[in-house]
Amino acid sequence: MEIVMAFVIGFLYAAALYMMLRRSIVKLVIGLVLLSNAANLVIFTAAGLVRGAPPLIYPGELLPPSASADPLAQALILTAIVIGFGVLAFAVVLIHRAYEVVGADDMDQMKDTDT
């Protein structure tokens, strides 16, 4: 399973970088979305893929069942998704405004501040 996940993650990183290297700023944002998903999957896989029970402590018990999934990694991913959601919402607003101001969906039109 880890091997499959490794390939999926690798493919996502590659696709993200390919999209970000395009000139279109819409594709740039799509690349960023893919990148953040790839990073989340890395956390998920690195924390260990086990076929376990949900990490819930049942009434009357003090510990979760012995073979349960790691809850911390899932909490991390959840936090990262929430943050990613906020940042990407901002990025979408930004490219919308940039498109209005510059009038083109093209990074080559946006190099006034580079020189």
């Binding site: 990148l35 953040s36 989340n40 890395v42 956390i43 690195a46 911390l72 990694a73 991390l76």
Partner: peptide, 14 residues
């Protein structure tokens, strides 16, 4: 940030 997150994931796995 995404590189940072990836590195945290690997570090946590380790």
């Amino acid at each position: 940030s995404m590189l940072f997150l990836t590195a945290i994931g690997l570090l946590y796995g380790l």
